[in-house]
């Protein structure tokens, strides 16, 4: 035996008595990069298995937003609800709203859903957990792209037509997904331990939708105006809609600020996630 150590990779597992955020962040980003094949494979597996057992297939992706948009179109056109002018054909407004909302909802739920689905292998095999988040994003992008195609069809059918700002849509969408995922990921560790969290989020988000310009615009005055203006979902929804139909972006600086905050939040959430997974496996594995 020589005293020289072999170049094999070394892993050390011990109780961490010191905070070491930066080395953790580095490991997280390395694993995130190294796991894209696994993430891709997870996403491919889930998407193809999801549609192989179904005739309607991807139609399900936009059936729900389409249905809820239809209800609001009916409510508006029948005069049950008087909705103020939205600056574009109301069906385009409400359909883009519900579609965008469903994407945001998915982005928030995706980290928890992906991690929960992998619980059985988490407790048995050591693989880069970041792949689960990444696969969630891949699935999200797939689902969103289908919805976006439908949205573009809608724009042309209702005569809004093409605007150059539409080309910005993918970028804006990625920013919105990033913010949603960062927020969802922050809640994932605690949400995996306590089922209360995901119920609470579902409930809260269904209420928050009415405080966001999804189905109707921001009123000109009153308390609702204040709430809707400061609601962080507002810039996400409106910016996406504005670039789609070619309107002036109303909350541009808020949106950019939110994206910046989202990036920071995402990094923090990733580190917390990495620390939390062993605790979750320990507490919940059979």
């Amino acid at each position: 035996m020589t005293s020289q150590q072999s170049p094999l990779p070394v892993k050390i597992y011990k109780r961490q008595n010191k905070a070491r955020v930066f080395s953790l962040l580095k490991e997280t980003l390395q694993d995130l990069w190294g796991s894209h094949f696994l993430a891709w494979q997870f996403a491919k597996r889930d998407i193809s298995s999801q549609y192989r057992q179904s005739y309607l297939g991807i139609i399900w992706l936009f059936l729900t937003p389409l249905a809820s948009a239809a209800i609001w179109i009916f409510l508006n056109s029948s005069g049950t609800l008087a909705i103020a002018d939205t600056g574009m054909p109301y069906p385009v407004y409400v359909f883009s709203g519900t579609l965008i909302w469903s994407m945001l909802l998915e982005a928030i739920n995706s980290p928890t859903v992906s991690t929960n689905a992998a619980r059985s292998i988490l407790s048995k095999i050591n693989f880069p957990k970041e792949a689960l988040i990444l696969s969630g994003i891949y699935k999200l992008l797939f689902n969103s792209s289908v919805k976006v195609v439908l949205l573009v069809v809608f724009i042309f059918v209702f005569g809004v037509g093409f605007h150059w700002s539409l080309l910005l849509f993918p970028l804006v969408l990625c920013c919105a997904i990033l913010v949603g995922t960062a927020f969802g990921l922050l809640l994932t560790p605690i949400g995996l331990l306590y089922t209360d969290v995901s119920r609470l989020i579902t409930m809260a988000l269904s209420l928050v939708m009415y405080l966001t310009p999804v189905m109707y615009g921001i009123p000109d005055s009153g308390i609702m105006k204040t709430i809707m203006t400061y609601n962080p979902f507002t810039p996400l929804v409106t910016t996406l809609r504005d670039v789609t139909v070619g309107q002036d972006v109303q909350f541009l600086s808020y949106f950019i600020g939110l994206t910046g905050a989202g990036i920071v939040l995402l990094l923090i959430s990733l580190v917390i996630y990495r620390i939390s997974i062993p605790v979750i496996v320990e507490r919940l594995s059979a």
Binding site: K11, K14, R15
Partner: peptide
């Protein structure tokens, strides 16, 4: 490496 020890060290090469 699925769960962390509460005491001691594991080194895997």
């Amino acid at each position: 490496g699925l769960i962390n020890p509460d005491a001691g060290t594991v080194t895997m090469r």
